Simulated assay, not measured.
Amino acid sequence: MTTYGYFLSSEEFTPAELLDQARMAEQAGFEALAISDHFHPWNDQQGQASFVWSMIGALSQVTPLPVTTLVTCPTVRLHPAVNAQAAATAAVLTGGRFRFGLGSGEALNEHILGDPWPEAPERLEMLEEAVEVIRKLFTGERVSHRGTHYRVENARLYTVPEEPAPLYLSGFGPQAAALAGRIGDGFVTMRPDTDLVERFRRAGGGSKPVIGGLKVCWDTDRDRAVKTAHRLWPNEQLPGELAQLLPTPAHFEQASTLVTEQMIADALTCGDKAADHLDAVGAYAKAGFDEVYVNQIGPDQKQFFDFYRTEVLPGLRA
C-alpha cells in the first residue's frame, strides 16, 4: 500500500507557514511529511530558505506525522559528523519517526563556504563516505575515521534514538540508483521512472522503500495555475545537470528564461480536475513507489488541502 504524504517547500514558505501546512496536511489525511533542505531558494520569487533542523524540531511539536528530508546533502556545507548529530536528535524528537534523505547536492547550496564543487563521480564518492561516517556515529560509540574526504577524531553521539534513522539515498541517474541500492535503506527519485527503480532493486535495493514526489498547482482557473507555477518554479523544467551546477538563484533565473508557460502546462498538473491529480500522483504507485509526497505551489493552501481531503486522497486509496 502506497503512503501519500505532503512535501513542505522550505524555499517558498516561511517557517510559520510550513507549520500551518503540516497541521493542515495531517487534518486532510496525509500520512507523512517531507521537507527540503536548502541554503538558498532556486530563485528570488520563491523567497525563503529556512534551516531544516530548526524546522524539524518545530514539526516534532505540532504533528505526529513522520518526517523525511528530501534531501540533505551531507558532504560539503555541513560535515557528515554534524549531519549525524542533527539527524540523531531529529529522530529522538520525533520519537523515531524521522527518516534521513540524502543526496549528492547542488552547487546552489553547497558552494557558499568557498569549497570546490566536484564533478558527479567524486560527489557520489563523497556521499558514500559520508554515509559510512553517519552510520558509525549512529551507533552511539566513539568514532575515529580517516578517509579520502573526511576525518573524525574521538567523536561520540550521546543523544541517539533506540533505532538509527534509516538513510534514503537520492538519485536521478543509473550510477546514483545503483549506489542507493548498495548502501541505502531506501531510494529517492522524483519521477515515476520504472527503469531507475528496477536499477535500484537489482543493485541491492530489493524490497526497500522507494520514495518520490511531485509538484502540483491547484487553482479553479487552470491558466492562472500555470502562470503561478511558471513564476515560482520554472527551474523544475531545466534540463540535464543544470540543477546541480548553477551556483546562485540569479543563475537559475537566467536559465529559466528558456522555460515557457507551455512547458509548465505540459509537465505539471495544474487546475482543479480531480482526475488529473489522481493520474499524476497515482503514476508513482503504478511505478512501484512506496511513498509519494505532493507539494502545492502557490498561495491556495487551504483550498488545496480541502480538495485533496475530499476528492484526491480517497480516490487514491480506493
Score class of each variant (00 low, 15 high):
Thr68Asp: 07
Ser50Gly: 15
Asp44Trp: 14
Asn43Thr: 08
Thr69Ile: 04
Thr69Phe: 04
Trp42Gly: 04
Leu59Cys: 11
Trp42Phe: 14
Thr63Asn: 06
Trp53Met: 15
Leu65Met: 15
Asn83Cys: 14
Gly57Gln: 10
Met55Ser: 14
Arg77Glu: 10
Pro41His: 04
Val52Leu: 05
Thr68Asn: 03
Leu78Ala: 12
Met55Trp: 01
Leu59Arg: 11
Pro74Met: 03
Leu59Lys: 09
Gln85His: 11
Gln61Ala: 15
Ala90Met: 00
Val82Tyr: 05
Ala49Ile: 10
Gln61Pro: 07
Gln45Cys: 14
Val76Arg: 10
Asn83Ile: 11
Gly57Lys: 09
Thr89Gly: 05
Val82Asn: 09
Val76Phe: 13
Thr89His: 04
Gln45Lys: 11
Ala81Asn: 06
Gly57Ile: 01
Val71Trp: 02
Asn83Gly: 03
Ile56Arg: 03
Ala84Ile: 00
Gln46Ala: 11
Ala34Met: 03
Ser60Tyr: 07
His38Glu: 10
Val62Phe: 07
His38Trp: 08
Val82Cys: 10
Ser36Asn: 09
Gln45Glu: 14
Met55Arg: 14
Ala84Ser: 08
Leu78Cys: 13
Gln45Ser: 15
Gln46Val: 04
Ala88Leu: 05
Thr89Asn: 07
Val82Trp: 02
His40Ile: 09
Thr72Cys: 01
Leu78Val: 12
Phe51Ala: 11
Leu70Pro: 00
Ile35Ser: 10
Phe39Glu: 07
Ala81Met: 02
His38Pro: 00
Gln61Met: 13
Asp37Arg: 07
Thr72Leu: 00
Ile56Leu: 04
Asn43Gln: 01
Leu65Ala: 14
Trp53Asn: 15
Ala49Glu: 13
Gln45Arg: 12
Ser54Leu: 07
Ala34Ser: 05
Ala86Leu: 06
Pro66His: 01
Val62Ser: 06
Trp42His: 08
Ile56Tyr: 09
Pro66Asp: 06
Val52Tyr: 05
Gln61Arg: 15
Ala90Tyr: 03
Val52Ser: 08
Ile56Pro: 00
Pro41Asn: 01
Ser60Phe: 06
Trp53Val: 10
Ala81Phe: 04
Ala86Phe: 02
Ile56Asn: 04
Leu59Ile: 06
Ala49Thr: 10
Gln45Ile: 13
Asp44Thr: 14
Ala87Cys: 03
Pro41Thr: 00
Ser36Asp: 11
Ala86Cys: 08
Val82Met: 10
Thr89Arg: 04
Thr69Cys: 03
Pro41Cys: 05
His38Gln: 12
Gln48Asn: 13
Leu78Tyr: 14
Thr68Ile: 11
Trp42Met: 11
Ala81Gln: 04
Gln61Trp: 04
Pro41Glu: 07
Val52Gly: 04
Phe39Asp: 07
Val76Cys: 12
Gln46Asp: 09
Pro41Tyr: 01
Asn43Gly: 07
His79Pro: 08
Val62Met: 01
Phe51Cys: 09
Asn43Leu: 05
Ala87Tyr: 03
Leu70Gln: 02
Trp53Lys: 12
Arg77Cys: 09
Val62Glu: 05
Gly47Pro: 04
Thr75Tyr: 12
Val52His: 01
Ser60Val: 06
Ser60Gly: 13
